Amino acid sequence: MYAASREARSRSREALRAALTGSDSVAATTGSELFAVVAVLDDQRSLRVALADVSVPGSVRAELSERVFGGKVSPASLAVLTTAVAQDWSRTSDLVDTLVLLGQEALLESAADSGRLDAVEDELFRLGRIIGDNPDLEQALADRAKSASAKRELIGGLLAGKTETITQTLAEQVVSRQKAGVGVAFDELSDLAAARREQIVAHVRAAIALTPQQRERLAASLQRIYGKQVTVHVQVDPTLLSGLVVHIGDDVIDGSAIGRLERLRRALA
């Protein structure tokens, strides 16, 4: 993302923070409505381009968005949308992607306000693992031939009554737009939820399931290393033989047997 879009995204996020006052229902409504706006923009290229056309004054673009969406979304959602549209974006896709991000952040804010953010974060991580471990499901959710509504119906049927409502809303939005890497997209959402709690996420692959005490000790050790609270998400991977592999951002800590064998092999070579 170029500098202009980074600045535009920053101002749009400020508008979101200003709009999310009052009850958690304001945040939930704003998130869902921003997703609905994105669905319209995905379907209408001419409108999408017009709202991001930097050759037109931002005030004119904001007025256009108000004519199109005014009365169809809440005042909070409209305030966020008009502010975003009034910014100068390097690319049209940057505007749409930012509206997606704002919708996600609004829904996570709602989860936090209702005390359900931990549950949503955990469900998003587990969903990413389930999809990543099921190639047929991942292919179906990323199938370009399937309509967005068909993908939403598929994931909605799988999650109905089994997850938080916010988790399902986020999941349906992800699969409706994602063309590849669906599992990774859920990992990114889980990380976004952790960031909302000012924590970092450790993605851990372990040869066997960790006990609660082992998870706590691992989290404490990583917290001492990184100086921040750490959320530990564990995936069992028997191919490691023993030990575990920890991914935090770009950092990889490989304490697995297979990793040690690979390092030995390279040393001998």
Rank of each mutant, 00 (worst) to 15 (best):
L141K: 10
S23D: 15
L192M: 13
E109T: 13
A194G: 14
V232P: 09
V49P: 04
G115W: 01
A140I: 05
R217G: 09
A193F: 13
V120T: 12
A79W: 06
N134Y: 08
D113K: 14
L47S: 01
F186G: 12
P135C: 10
A62K: 11
V175A: 13
L34P: 12
V80K: 02
A140W: 02
Q235I: 13
L124V: 04
E164R: 14
R265Q: 03
Q104L: 07
E121F: 04
L81M: 00
L127M: 14
V120Y: 10
T167P: 12
A4M: 08
V73F: 05
I155C: 02
T239P: 01
A18E: 05
V245W: 02
G243Q: 05
Q199F: 07
I253W: 03
G161I: 13
I253A: 02
Q199I: 04
V54P: 02
T83V: 01
A202F: 10
D191Y: 07
D136N: 02
A194S: 14
G227C: 12
V38T: 10
R11Y: 12
E33L: 09
S46K: 13
Q214H: 12
S59R: 08
A62D: 11
S65Y: 04
S55Q: 08
R196Q: 15
S12Q: 03
D254M: 01
R205L: 14
